[in-house]
């Protein structure tokens, strides 16, 4: 069933169109940077963007930071929101369940497919970022012992360090997106409209981002799903500041666990009338 879901997802033109669009913005930013040579000053604009002119190998991180606030969550919410509700709207859900495919199995397969989408998307954004960064900007080759770049704290990092930490950052972003996916998947079991499920998940994220900026909401700020999204920047401090990272992982873990349990409870007892 998992193979079937993966085949369905990656044979779908929309999946690749989404990934292509996601990559367009970082590429555009890179080209603009190259043409104008006007990097934002350190501490302004998307993280890492100020550093890429001196080291293109950091561009994968800049690319992730560019798509993380809005584009990546939208893409994940679209795919995850479509997972059950899309089948319901197309009418294929009833045929799958009458085939029969166990409801729990279907939900797990959908979850794995969404997870695969998140990973593939994040990896492709990072990879395209790396290719763009190293071709357009000056870069230190991986594996050399030379100083690869400077950490956010100002100390030197070897290219090996940067590569390791970039992989960790990719993983962290993927986990953050899993939280988005869990919201969208849960809403997807509630409604027969994929658009509704996607919008529901995005509404949660917009509300969370908005509350985060509000001082009055500070008591609940640590529990907002988007609170620790940008904590992957802390991976590039020297030494790594784990506090927000571990909190971010734990928070996403709780959201994912609770929402998937709710999705399962709802979907397995639901009348399929679509």
């Amino acid at each position: 069933m998992i193979v079937v879901e993966l085949r369905k997802m990656f044979r779908r033109p929309r999946t690749w169109a989404t990934i292509a669009v996601l990559n367009a913005l970082p590429i555009l930013v890179a080209v603009l940077l190259l043409l104008t040579d006007l990097a934002p000053r350190p501490g302004e604009g998307p993280p890492f963007l100020s550093a890429v002119l001196s080291n293109g190998a950091l561009y994968p991180l800049a690319a992730l930071a560019i798509v993380l606030p809005l584009f990546l969550p939208i893409a994940v919410a679209v795919v995850a929101g479509d997972s059950i509700a899309g089948e319901a709207q197309a009418g294929t859900l009833r045929y799958l369940l009458a085939r029969p495919v166990g409801r729990t199995r279907l939900l797990v397969a959908k979850l794995v497919a969404v997870l695969a989408f998140v990973l593939v998307t994040v990896l492709i954004v990072a990879l395209v970022g790396y290719v763009v960064g190293t071709t357009l900007f000056h870069a230190q080759p991986l594996g050399s012992t030379a100083v690869g770049g400077t950490s956010v704290s100002g100390t030197a990092l070897t290219p090996q360090d940067i590569a390791d930490r970039t992989m960790m950052a990719i993983g962290y972003v993927a986990v953050s997106m899993l939280g988005v996916a869990a919201f969208a998947l849960f809403f997807s079991t509630l409604t027969d409209s994929p658009l509704g499920a996607t919008m529901g998940a995005l509404a949660v994220l917009v509300a969370s981002s908005l509350l985060f900026t509000l001082d009055a909401a500070s008591p609940i700020a640590p529990y907002l799903p988007t609170r620790y999204w940008l904590a992957f920047v802390d991976l590039f401090r020297d030494p790594i500041q784990w506090r927000d990272l571990t909190r971010g992982l734990a928070l996403q873990g709780v959201y994912v666990g609770v929402l998937l349990a709710a999705a399962w409870a709802n979907f397995t007892t639901k009348d399929v009338t679509s």
């Binding site: 193979v3 044979r11 033109p13 197309a90 009418g91 294929t92 009833r94 045929y95 799958l96 085939r99």
Partner: peptide, 22 residues
């Protein structure tokens, strides 16, 4: 209540996926 398939795939592919699903 009427047939339902994945519109972007061929009929053969649709049947094959349905068969593989369960």
């Amino acid at each position: 209540e009427g047939p339902a398939h994945y519109g972007h795939l061929s009929g053969r592919e649709n049947l094959s996926l349905l068969d593989a699903a369960g």
